[in-house]
Design a binder for these strands. Sequence first.
DNA 1: CCTCCTCTAGAACGAACGCTCTATCCAGCG
DNA 2: CGCTGGATAGAGCGTTCGTTCTAGAGGAGG
Lengths: 203, 203
Amino acid sequence: MKTAQSTAEKSSSVGTRERIVRATSRLLQRQGYEGTGIKQISREAEATLGSVYHFFPGGKQELAAEAIRHGDQEFAVILRAGLGSSEDLAEAVTTCTTLLARELRASDWQDGCPITTTALETVGRAPVIEQAVAEAFAHWRAIVEERLRAAGIGGEDARELAGTVINTLEGAELSAQVARSEDPLHTAGRHLARLLATYRPSA
Amino acid sequence: MKTAQSTAEKSSSVGTRERIVRATSRLLQRQGYEGTGIKQISREAEATLGSVYHFFPGGKQELAAEAIRHGDQEFAVILRAGLGSSEDLAEAVTTCTTLLARELRASDWQDGCPITTTALETVGRAPVIEQAVAEAFAHWRAIVEERLRAAGIGGEDARELAGTVINTLEGAELSAQVARSEDPLHTAGRHLARLLATYRPSA
DNA sequence: CCTCCTCTAGAACGAACGCTCTATCCAGCG
DNA sequence: CGCTGGATAGAGCGTTCGTTCTAGAGGAGG
């Protein structure tokens, strides 16, 4: 049991289950839930259908929920990297948008938020997925909120602003994908910095 | 030719083509592009498959593009209603979010932005749809921009802020759907009003 | 009357869907 | 050595997909 990857199976040294989750996460990000088939997943993950259903007996929904949690962590890494890049809050926020813009352009405007598409497709129709999505959003808000508090923004303000920061980033990323331009993200960064500045009279 | 609706065909007095577009628009809004089948559309529209392909020989993509344009107009109506509701800019913006929140709750958090889901699903894979989406976003930005100029915000600022207003509304609506709560929208309204206020020293 | 043309109607096609199922492989252990 | 059980492998199930195709309904113009 737990054979893991033994000795560099398949193309990389990562176990079958992990390969399946990663492939699913990337496919959901790019083509959404309905647009991604289990067979396509098993193909891209270099796993067989049998393996997919072995590790995820709950089928497509369970697999998608796990992939959403993976995307959650992925996005959190970027968020933390940006927010931790500077003592100055405004700079930290614009670094976030810059990081997102860079990744988006590098993927030819394909890799937006890892979970948004799936989230929208499954609203009110796949509870397991919905919960994973809700947890991801809460997780990201918590990361931002903590940074805002570190910058001296207090109580209710930090919580609410964290929500708006995440929402605006989401909207800007969507816009950037549609327009194939980094501009919406950069503009969002500047506007968010400006909004946050109104909560701290001066530097 | 142009029989239109003659004498109150089907359930309502609207012609077949229009019924198809409306049904498609609502289905795309709720289940996205891949999750919506042509046969389901023809069923809901009370039209036959033959009629669908008669009016939209370009198939699903052409039909979706037309539905996106329909959703564009629909959202524009709400936007104009909100923005035109008050002389005060801040109040006008929060009215927008209130209208969106009301509609969202009334549909049990199902009817978010009419085009976002389809937009994300088709990024980089369905040019006809992508263009309709891009035009819708540009349209909405133009509506907001005009209102901002009427409020005395000038030049580049109005253009950029209009983009951020739309983006933040989009993100907040997504969040509201996921969280099944009006809060993200109301918060977004307040934060947007606050951001805009920094461009006009006082009332 | 017949002709033409728009629109309606739905059977049928090959492909893909999610999922089930049986069979096999193989490391660990008694 | 055989046994056990996790993991792999993929054929095949019934269903639905987007699309094509032929046939007919119904009104307008000759």
